[in-house]
Design a protein around this nucleic acid. Sequence first.
DNA 1: CCCGGCGCCTGAGGGC
DNA 2: TGCCCTCAGGCGCCGG
Length: 278
Amino acid sequence: MPELPEVEAVRSSLEPLLCGQEIIKVMIYHAGVISPLTAEAFAAALAGKNIAAVRRRGKYLLFSLQGKDVSGDVLMVHLRMTGQLVCEAPDAPMKKHTHVVLTLENGQEIRFTDVRRFGKMAVFPGGDFSRDPGLAALGPEPLSEEFSPEYFYTKINQKKVKIKAALLDQEIVAGLGNIYADEVLFVAKVLPTRLCCSLSRREVDCLCQCIKNILAEAVLHKGTTFRDYVDGEGKKGSHQDFLQVYQREGVPCSRCGTIIQRVKIAGRSSHFCPHCQK
DNA sequence: CCCGGCGCCTGAGGGC
DNA sequence: TGCCCTCAGGCGCCGG
């Protein structure tokens, strides 16, 4: 499930492969993954454009496009659950569930594959994200200075939601998903069921620092490959070898030996140690 | 404001 | 072996 570290690994692996390349052909095999433009308008908006930069905001991949006269359009890709964006040679076998293929001037292909088709691609003319409320409302990048203990405390302080739900709220902090939210709460020793308004300033400071530390570490490990995730070269991540609670229900806690438990919070599995998380 | 639940999707995995 | 059921979860949306 691509979260910030996985999307960053896709971004950094694609950047040297795509920057400066012109998109010469657009093939759409499943128009359902494209919005808000029609498939025809989407293809027309990409053909002949040059990829000037490969950026990331939260879990969104953003490709800055430049044309001969117009520029500033942005191609957005969101991988959601099972999406993959891989740069491959044209003779590489086409994977099942490949929905969009962009051919570059050097012959390489960017292939968007998604078993569940939850993922989305879009072009925003002039880089205007207002057509995508989720992207427009995204909170600060957790690895930036903007995401500070002061900011986080202000956002969390009054809320009556469970802290697990708040960590998954992309308007509070951009890029956390179910895996890293559970890992952050474990390292910070905070139960996922705690209400935000019950957290002390010290606990919020700790959570803020844990978010930064864990995401930075996972970025170094090129993300977590639990099932589907691969980067822009088709390579798996290695952070799954470092997970302490996610998908470890029934396994002894690495700190105290208590059996890790799993409960549903906000519709998602939450894994935690009932002894050392308070 | 907050919560639970559903829908979108397919494939893996468990029970029988 | 095979069938049916549940579950996985990011995110938008809806009703209470």
